[in-house]
């Protein structure tokens, strides 16, 4: 249970799709002019991630990983099909998106009206493929965790696009320097929001470190705290980089 909660908050805040790894930036920038459309796209992303990540987890576990084909018989134990993962993942995503679109259109026309137009856009959204690829890279262990990961990274993306859409609606009334208007200021605001989200980095590790430090006089404490802060920043770098490196 604890690992579920940890993964949930980690995917939403610390490894936020937009602010930590820049996934889905194209639609994030293109569809964030109004809050209403941003909510629609965000909901569609949560939905599709929740479907495709567990599905790709199953594919990875029983088809692609080194030795995954062993369930067919011991003679297949040596096969490693992981080089096929890109093409299989993207094919799954494209078909799932089409399928979801057809099913939603058939059974819930009202949902289709609000989500439907975004679904084709989503097949080529990097956040979706990124979700599956990071799921593979982080070696998520169970199907439940994979589902959790899909949903929570979707929520993280939803939060990000909602926030930027709200800001962009307001910024229309501000006097932004002409060359920065539109795209430029959106980039810079996203960068600033990303810096804000960086501070969530200590959320899951910070508590333990603080408990271990012995209580000294105030100056020593201050130095300790500064050291910790530096360490935390370094650790965040690592936690972000080791995903890339490992």
């Amino acid at each position: 249970m604890l690992e579920h909660i940890e993964l949930f908050f980690k995917s939403i805040f610390i490894d936020n799709m937009v602010f930590a790894v820049f996934l889905g930036m194209c639609s994030y920038l293109a569809v964030s002019k109004k809050v209403a459309t941003a909510v629609g796209l965000g909901a569609a992303v949560i939905f599709v991630l929740g479907v495709t990540v567990p599905l790709n987890w199953l594919l990875d576990k029983y088809l692609l990983q080194d030795g995954a084909l062993v369930w067919l018989g011991p003679e297949y134990a040596d096969y490693d099909l992981s080089f096929l993962s890109f093409i299989l993942f993207i094919a799954t995503i494209a078909t799932m998106v089409q399928l979801v679109e057809i099913v939603v259109e058939k059974f819930s026309p009202s949902l289709y009206n609000s989500l439907g137009i975004f679904l084709p856009l989503i097949a080529v959204n990097c956040a979706i493929l990124g979700g599956s690829l990071f799921m593979q890279a982080r070696q998520i262990e169970t199907l439940g965790l994979a589902f959790n990961y899909g949903i929570s990274s979707g929520i993280g993306w939803f939060l990000a696009i909602l926030a930027i859409a709200a800001i962009r609606e307001k910024i229309r009334y501000s006097n932004v320097p002409a060359p920065l208007r539109g795209l430029g200021i959106t980039f810079i605001i996203t960068g600033l929001m990303g810096i804000g989200f960086q501070s969530f980095g200590g959320m899951l590790t910070g508590g333990d470190d603080a408990a271990e430090t012995p209580v000294d006089d105030t100056t020593a404490k201050k130095i300790e705290k500064e050291k910790e802060l530096k360490k935390e920043i370094d650790e965040n770098e690592i936690s972000y980089n080791d995903v890339i490196k490992e």
Partner: peptide, 23 residues
């Protein structure tokens, strides 16, 4: 400059420079 958000800000500045040179 190493943390991810810096990339966005650098691109923002590139856009700023480019657009002020070409109104």
């Amino acid at each position: 400059m190493i943390i991810p958000p810096a990339a966005l800000i650098v691109v923002g500045i590139i856009i700023w420079v480019q657009r002020s040179r070409n109104p």
